[in-house]
Structures are given as C-alpha cells and as structure tokens.
C-alpha cells in the first residue's frame, strides 16, 4: 500500500507547482503575477501544513497507521511552499531590498508573524532527517511541538492581511481549531477514563495519565 501511497502524495503536493508553471506559460497568472504567485504559494503552504497536522488524527481515528509515514514529506512540502512564498516576496516583489524587507518585518504585524512562522519552520525541516530523529531522541518531539504555534501564526498572518473578506482565513482557522481540538480530546480521554475508574475527583491528574502511553507502533512514530 505504502509503495504507491508515498509517490502519490508526492505528486499531489507538486500539483500547485505544476499549476503555477502552466499559468506562467499560458500567461494566466492574472494581470499582477507577482501578487498572484505570492498569494498562491502562501495559501498552499497553509493548506499543506494543515494536511500534515491532519495525519495523526486521521491515523488514530481510522487506525490506518501507515499514514504516519507520509507526515514528514507533507510537512516538508509545507516548508517548501512557505519558502517559495517568502522568496517571491523577497526576490520578485521587493527585488532584494533588504532594508524594505527588514522594515516590513519590524513594522507590519502580519509580516512579523508570517516571517516568524517561516523561521520557526527551519529547525523542523533541519531535524526531519532520520539521523536527527535518532540523535535528538525525546527532544525531537519537543522541538516538533513547534508546529502548533507555526500553524497558528500562519493563520494569523493570513487573517491580518485580508482587507475585508475574512472567509478563507476563518476557514483555515476553523480547520486548525478542529485538528487541535481532536488532539486535545485524545489527550483528555484517557485522563477522564482514569478519573471515572477511580470514581473520585482527581487531585493529581498527571500521575493518573502518563503521556504517550501504549501507542500503536510507538517505536517509529512521534505524535506531534
């Protein structure tokens, strides 16, 4: 199954690039291609980031454990589109005017949060190799919890930049809230069960619910 799953996901993640290339050759990137490419790559970065966050809930809800093997690639694609997004802004829009870029990052909150999200993604990309996972051990998990603030900053970046039509950023925000909500539910369920089992109010829930316990295939996966 995985044999075709991974290449398939890889190709799907490349469709937006192909769309851009096609739009470029058919002169179809609107009258303002730079703005279009900026928005397009930004949107896809967010969508793919949300997809990477959907892997764990999907896996746990469906029991389809092989999905986890797609997560790294999807996450790296989110970084890839974020990098394209920033490059478009830096190279095409502002033509390497680093003074203007620095001023933007400092002065414009939506750019501040967007840039922060991108910078925070770098350590995740760097530590995504098998070697780094091994070397970092338990700390790998902690580093990769960064994906939650990254996703929140990304959605905020989008929300703060639109002029009036907040529908799309709100959609992205809702999906993110749902994905984080599911995680919270996963976390709380065993705790609640333990409380019920004990039949009393828990004073020390931490002792009742050790984290990351008895997960399927706990040796190879990290649930971030």
């Amino acid at each position: 199954m995985l044999i075709c799953l991974k290449p398939l996901a890889f190709i799907i993640c490349l469709i937006p690039v192909a769309q851009l290339a096609y739009g470029y050759y058919s002169d179809n990137l609107t009258a303002n291609p730079i703005e279009y490419i900026t928005r397009f790559t930004g949107s896809w970065s967010l969508i793919i980031l949300l997809a990477s966050l959907a892997v764990t809930p999907l896996r746990r809800l469906t029991g389809w454990n092989e999905l986890i093997k797609l997560r790294r690639m999807i996450g790296l694609f989110a970084f890839f589109y974020a990098a394209l997004h920033f490059s478009t802004y830096m190279v095409l829009d502002l033509d390497f005017d680093f003074a203007a870029i620095a001023k933007d990052i400092w002065k414009r909150p939506y750019i501040t949060v967007g840039f922060s999200a991108l910078v925070l993604m770098i350590p995740l990309a760097v530590t995504s190799t098998a070697g780094m996972i091994r070397r970092l051990g338990k700390r790998w998990q902690q580093v990769h919890y960064l994906v939650y603030p990254i996703a929140m900053l990304g959605v905020l970046h989008f929300y703060w930049l639109v002029k009036a039509d907040i529908r799309r950023p709100v959609q992205y925000g809702s999906v993110l809230a749902l994905l984080l909500g599911i995680r919270l539910a996963f976390r709380l369920t065993p705790i609640v069960k333990t409380w019920r089992a004990k039949g009393s109010t828990p004073l020390l829930p931490s002792s009742a619910a050790p984290r990351g316990r008895k997960e399927v295939g706990a040796g190879t996966e990290r649930s971030a």
Partner: peptide, 16 residues
C-alpha cells in the same frame, strides 16, 4: 497601517 504606500507596482511592470 499594514503596508507601505511609498511604492507601487504598475501592472505589466516587474519592478516597483
């Protein structure tokens, strides 16, 4: 408040 008005992109041109 969210972006500069000092420059603009003329549609059809690459540089601001």
């Amino acid at each position: 408040p969210r972006w500069t008005q000092a420059t603009e992109r003329r549609i059809g041109e690459l540089r601001r």
